[in-house]
């Protein structure tokens, strides 16, 4: 074909190759500069800052090696922040994945109006996190809608069993604050996970189900024996995204708990801790160290997950 030979000719001439490469570098110059400076450069710079005494006013000070890392781990509030973030991840990730998968299977059926329901379930995910959080705080306050509705429905005795007062202050009480934020984020993000799972469900060929139906499998069996295992790459993808997101909890904690993660540090997340160090205590060195610790945790978990689930075929 003429086209193929034309391409071959271009490849074989050094000048064509060189001009193509030059054009390519021009195309990627600005984006790559930004990526290299603001991302890769940032990590290296953070590494550098974290081994010095570094304060916003004094700038770079003495080299102190890993002292910043050691100091951070000696701070009980940092330990609390780690505990909170880990607890958040352990509860929020499976919960939101389960709800997302449930919704995906639900709206994947051939039902009238499913496009509408998909759109509705996804909407909280695209609304502003700040707006959704203040809305949630409003609903969860002692005389808010949530307590009002459960009272009206006569559910208070059940809540009483678990030790919740009729006017429970869900976000203001250190025992329920983090769980309330977990529910809030499950509510918003399950829609995103629904879409991820929907895309993954589409990759399962219909014949698999037809064969199973002929063998007399019920829909419950079909889900657990066929759908769930075949979604493995989907699980892996969603879990990875979810864990990375969970460890970066910030907006909701900052808005509901202020800069100190109130009440009683119940909402102090690792990122909120970092933010506090940098912008209220001006300890840039320790803040950089916390950022690197967080990055190391995320990287490790991602690799473990990859090991656990096996790598997806397209990776």
């Amino acid at each position: 074909m003429t086209i193929a030979s034309a391409r071959d000719r271009r490849v074989s001439t050094g000048i064509g190759q060189r001009s193509e490469a030059l054009a390519a570098y021009a195309f990627i110059a600005i984006p790559m500069l930004l990526f290299l400076v603001l991302n890769i450069g940032s990590i290296l710079y953070a590494l550098f800052i974290s081994v010095f005494q570094w304060n916003i006013r004094s700038g770079a000070g003495a080299f102190i090696g890993i002292a910043n890392y050691q100091n951070v781990f000696k701070d009980p509030i940092f330990i609390r922040a780690i505990q909170n973030s880990v607890y958040y991840a352990i509860v929020w990730v499976p919960l939101t994945m389960a709800v997302g998968l449930f919704l995906a299977v639900l709206v994947n059926q051939k039902l009238r109006g499913r496009t509408f329901f998909r759109a509705a379930f996804y909407f909280p995910a695209i609304a502003s996190s700040a707006a959704v959080t203040v809305l949630w705080i409003f609903l969860a306050q002692p005389d808010g809608l949530f307590n009002g509705i459960r009272g009206a429905l006569g559910l208070n005795p059940i809540f009483q069993l678990f030790g919740f007062a009729p006017n429970q202050n869900w976000i203001g009480d250190s025992h329920t604050a983090l769980n309330s934020v977990i529910l809030l984020n499950a509510w918003t993000t399950s829609g995103t996970f629904m879409l991820f799972y929907l895309a993954s469900l589409q990759t399962i060929p219909g014949e698999v189900y037809e064969a199973a139906a002929i063998d007399g499998a019920g829909s419950w069996q079909m889900f657990w024996r066929i759908t769930f295992p075949l979604l493995k790459p989907g699980h892996y993808f969603v879990a990875t995204v979810a864990v990375i997101g969970a460890l970066q909890l910030f907006d909701q904690a900052r808005i509901a708990g202020g800069t100190t993660g109130d009440p009683a540090n119940a909402l102090m997340s690792v990122v909120l801790y970092l933010y506090n160090l940098a912008f209220f205590k001006f300890d840039f060195d320790r803040a950089a160290a916390v950022g690197l610790i967080l990055f190391a945790i995320i990287l490790t978990l991602t690799l473990i997950q990859r090991r656990l689930f096996g790598s997806a075929p397209s990776w």
Partner: peptide, 29 residues
Amino acid sequence: LRFPGREALFLIVLATLMIPDQLRLVPVY
């Protein structure tokens, strides 16, 4: 387009997706 370093540079683009914004906070500021 074909150019030397294409794969390595694209890997850098993908790597940026793993870097938490918060890690970049202090250096970027």
